[in-house]
Design a protein around this nucleic acid. Structure first.
Lengths: 331, 331
DNA sequence: TTGTACGCGTTATCAA
DNA sequence: TTGATAACGCGTACAA
């Protein structure tokens, strides 16, 4: 199928490109007869305006960027579905990039998206990111940004997150009520907002139940399986926990797997609770109980804020900080 | 951060835009002194060529499109990782779209990507797609396409797939060798290439072992959980299978879940084999044995073929049809 | 009611 | 060695 431009239509109909352009945009100044002729012909040859030319002209692209640490992850892929649905509905395209937990990759992604003139950005920070100067440097007036899930701890940005504190509190409380007193907490790097909030929820639940917080059984992990094995080994051998409260999809799987492979036969009373959207966790035996985040809704809310900001930049006063409730899923 | 254009640099240095352009592209005709001055200044103000302007000019974008049915799926997200790694290495961006198993969405995605001037397309077809006229109509000369996983059954296109026949054959053979004689086969819509190839492998394994093929226990499913429940009910109640061989990530989970919820207690000898990249299947109890596809490599090979085609369109003679070996994973 | 000319940022061609 | 100009496709101010 050949690509047809305004110029082609103009030539074919013996008109000027501006007349054709106006006719297609239903301008009042064009003769209805001419208009109909142009519209019909454009339809016939399946004319589509060149979005690249439009971007160059208008300095925007009707597309938004999304950066997540990885897409092979239930939480993020569900969030992306929310982002996509709303964006699609409102006529925007979604360009998805992965940072692979690398700051360098994240910087490169942001700069590419910015150069490609996406109209805005929805991002969950990489595990290696400690500040967001590489994002904020573009200035939020002409480059709106909404952070979700892993957000920076600064005030003047839009944020959408799960109730990490509450979810962690509920999970820990459940474990305590199930008779567990030595709950190991295995979580993401302490640089991440989610890590600190979940840790705080865990800690508060302990304190509210008169259990001393023990930092020896709290472990910050990166996301590779080998590290999980070492951590599990050390915890089991030296600290005798009776349950795990694990944060992030990836860590939940890594640690569960490591435990099953090495200690399942010596301890069958263990309980597992994961802050994870892994949707098959209840099929495991023993199951992983889960704190489930409304990932789809988080994505949806984030992109709504972003698109509102893009479309009426004046209207917004202040910044959103949306917190969505989590849900506990026990078998 | 302000965006700097060639014109800005030219004005600042009292040169013409063409001189600046040539200096930055290290043209031989520019005075080394001028060149250095320009390069230094561009560096200082962090000049980045506007990729949109380049796209408009060159009629290409150094980006490629990827369309998959869904990204919340282990196979596809792993394949995308392969695609991304190679594309990134070679300086291309990857724009990911989901068809959500809808032909309409797929058509819209292709047309958007084409209009956005991606230099080529890597696609796994939706479950609703029966022919590829909506893709081939753009003409493969200026819009190279590589199909992977779910490919059309025509000759003159590039394809990269797993050895679906072999994988299904091996899985079925394993079940037979484990003493199963009434193996239900639950699989994707018959419109898909993968469906037919896997079915053929299943059937051949039966025949090679002197077991009659019984079409009553072969079921084609769409991807919603409710349908899985109905199918399982009917199979169990009316056909008494002793094992399931399930194809696709999603069907494997849906059917396993439905079976566990309803029949786990009445039959604990059941075996499950899934054609799935679900990486936690061995943690289930009973486990799902799996045929694993080299998803990452499939993505990698697909994008290699695509980029080679994009970069040296003359060089390619004929079309690739790559078939990658699967692997059996039994606990 | 329609057409001409310009500009978005860049590179290529031709002129100086 | 450098500069002016046209072109990519589009929309729009201005002219007719």
């Amino acid at each position: 199928m050949e690509i047809v431009t305004l110029k082609d239509i103009a030539k074919a109909l013996n008109l000027s490109t501006s007349t054709v352009s106006r006719a297609l945009r239903d301008s009042y100044e064009i003769n209805p007869v001419t208009k109909k002729m142009v519209v019909d012909y454009a339809e016939k040859v399946n004319y589509r305006p060149n979005p690249i030319a439009l971007s160059l002209k208008e300095n925007k692209s009707r597309s938004i960027g999304v950066i997540v640490p990885e897409i092979a992850n239930n939480f993020f892929s569900q969030a992306i579905n929310g982002i996509e649905d709303e964006a699609y509905k409102r006529g925007y395209h979604v360009v998805i990039f992965q940072s692979h937990e690398s700051l360098e990759r994240e910087i490169s992604n942001v700069s590419h998206l910015y150069a490609r003139k996406v109209d805005g950005l929805v991002i969950s920070l990489s595990g290696a990111t400690t500040d967001v100067s590489h994002i904020s440097k573009y200035g939020h007036e002409n480059f709106p940004v909404v952070y979700f899930d892993r957000v920076p701890e600064i005030e003047d940005v839009h944020k959408v997150q799960a109730d990490n504190f509450g979810g962690a509190y509920d999970a820990t409380t459940f474990l305590i009520n199930s008779g567990k007193l030595n709950i190991a907490h295995i979580t993401s790097p302490p640089t991440l907002s989610i890590t600190r909030e979940r840790l705080a929820g865990y800690r508060k639940a302990l304190e509210d139940n008169g259990i001393a917080y023990n930092e020896d059984i709290v472990r910050f992990c990166r996301f590779d399986p080998e590290e999980a094995i070492d951590v599990i080994d050390d915890l089991i051998i030296n600290h005798n926990p009776d349950s795990f409260f694990t944060c992030s999809d990836r860590l939940a799987i890594n640690t569960y797997q490591a435990f099953q492979a090495r200690y399942a036969d010596v301890n069958d009373q263990f309980l597992f609770f994961g802050f994870t959207n892994l949707n098959v966790a209840h099929l495991f035996k023993p199951p992983i109980h889960t704190v489930v985040q409304p990932a789809y809704e988080i994505g949806l809310e984030a992109v709504k804020i972003l698109l509102d900001d893009i479309e009426k930049p004046k209207k917004r006063v202040g910044f959103e900080n949306k917190i969505l409730k989590t849900e506990i899923n026990v078998k």
